[in-house]
Design a protein around this nucleic acid. Structure first.
Length: 393
RNA sequence: GGACGGUUACCCAAGUGGCCAACGGGGACUGACUGUAAAUCAGUUGGCGACACGCCUUCGGAGGUUCGAAUCCUUCACCGUCCA
């Protein structure tokens, strides 16, 4: 139950107890636990936040349990309203299929491909009749939905709450039933979907309700709000080692604890040791974060790349030298600095380029440029802000 | 079907005839400080610019009134709330 977060001690105890019992039952039946987690391919890219439940699944795999990775190609048509206080746009089948394509592939950076079942929930949801829907829906009251925080908020604001948004929970609940799941993994935003919807539907359909394994939510690079691509605070999985390392370093210190718990392989005692070190001053928070970054990068790219990413980071940012791989630009004589910034995309407009120069944000060979209409004296490295470099040739 | 209300820059949101390229907040960007931190502080955030309180394009779409409109009128589109 490490890394779990139920927001209610009693619930956590109940779930832990139920899990123990279920494990024993399974042992008697001579089968592993059926564990699953669903992912909605509403965006094409997975990010670190998605890997939190995946890691949990991986742990189950390593213990010999039966893991299913559900791609919510049908649920994605609605979009989970759980973590949003506004309506999510509906996607088309085509958009969802397109996103789903790369999903599994990215997931296998965490999960063991050989031991993972991949299922698409359209498989069982697409064929549900209206009659079945009526039966499922009759297990729930409007009040149950309206007292959920996110709907309640919208209700009070006088914002629209569409009927179809309530279907999402039913659909997810039906997933659990279709898979005859013993355990369902999800973030705290899934508490309602798992605890209320899935368990109720499973019981209604004559199955044993699945056990909710609720995990903490990984904050984004701002350290506060849930990681999400649409908020721009995400760390994508599909990025290179250097970028990933840098992005982890940019999280605020206060978020380190969550990151250590949710996205590293360190054990609780190891994490406790690090936290104690920071507290008593024997470990510099920066070094703790560097270790965190190394851990995370190595999980995706291996130790060699992680160590290399750290070197690059130290060189570039701590020592302020210029990175190795920077784009180059073939300059011609009559290009002013503004022209260069514009054509290379370092500035979106001439005005923006001027602004950057006015604000002393543009340097050539380390010297601040103060006249926008200057022509560069020769070859060298042009730097915009802290992170953008261009080799002028 | 009836009665209201809304649509403003990346997002939220003020503005109800001229001082509006448009208050404020968020985000983003630049600089200072730093641990590429975070927090904080300062600045910037439509385009073009000989950098001038100049010009051009913006306030859902189209048309109109006016010397002058985001603001008034007509019309179209979309959205919401309430009543039934």
């Amino acid at each position: 139950m490490q890394g779990t977060e139920y927001g209610d001690e009693k619930l956590k105890q109940n779930m832990a107890e139920e899990l123990r019992t279920r494990l024993l039952e399974c042992q008697k039946e001579g089968r592993p636990l059926r564990v699953y987690c669903g992912f909605d391919p509403r965006k094409a890219d997975l990010h670190l936040g998605h890997t939190v439940p995946m890691r949990k699944l991986r742990q189950f795999q390593e213990l010999g349990h039966d893991v299913t990775f559900v791609i919510g190609n049908y649920t994605s048509l609605i979009g989970d309203p759980s973590d949003k206080d506004v309506l999510r746009p509906q996607l088309t089948h085509e958009e969802v299929e397109e996103n789903a394509r790369t999903y599994a592939e990215q997931a296998f950076r965490i999960l063991d491909k050989e031991k993972t079942h991949i299922r698409f929930n359209a498989e069982w949801l697409a064929g549900i009749s209206f009659e079945q829907l009526i039966r499922l829906a009759s297990n729930f009251t409007m009040q149950q939905f309206l007292t959920r925080e996110n709907f309640k908020l919208r209700w009070e604001k006088g914002d629209a709450i569409y009927l179809h948004e309530t279907f999402y929970s039913l659909m997810q609940g039906y997933d659990a039933y279709a898979l005859k799941a013993d355990v369902q993994v999800g973030g705290t935003d899934q508490l309602f979907n798992i605890m209320t919807a899935a368990r109720k539907i499973m019981e209604f359909m004559g199955e044993k309700p699945n056990i909710a394994l609720i995990l903490g939510i990984l904050p984004g690079t701002d350290g506060v709000v849930k990681m999400s691509k649409s908020l721009g605070n995400h760390i994508p999985i599909n990025t290179d080692a250097n970028d990933m390392y840098g992005k982890v370093m940019s999280i605020p210190d206060m978020a380190m604890a969550q990151y250590y718990r949710l996205v590293t392989r360190l054990t609780p005692p190891q994490i406790a040791e690090i936290e104690e070190g920071i507290k008593n001053g024997s470990l510099h928070p920066r070094d703790a974060k560097m270790r965190l970054a190394r851990e995370i990068v190595s999980a995706f790219y291996g130790d060699d790349d992680a160590i290399n990413a750290e070197k690059v980071f130290i060189e570039t940012f701590q020592k302020g030298s210029i990175p190795d791989n920077i784009p180059s630009f073939k300059n011609s004589e009559n290009n002013t600095i503004i022209d260069i910034l514009l054509t290379t995309g370092l500035a979106k407009s001439r005005s923006e380029a001027r602004r950057l120069i006015d604000q002393k944000g543009v340097r050539f060979e380390g010297k601040v440029i103060d006249n926008a209409n200057d022509v560069l004296p020769g070859n060298g490295v042009l730097q915009v802000g802290k992170r953008h470099f261009l080799r002028i040739e």
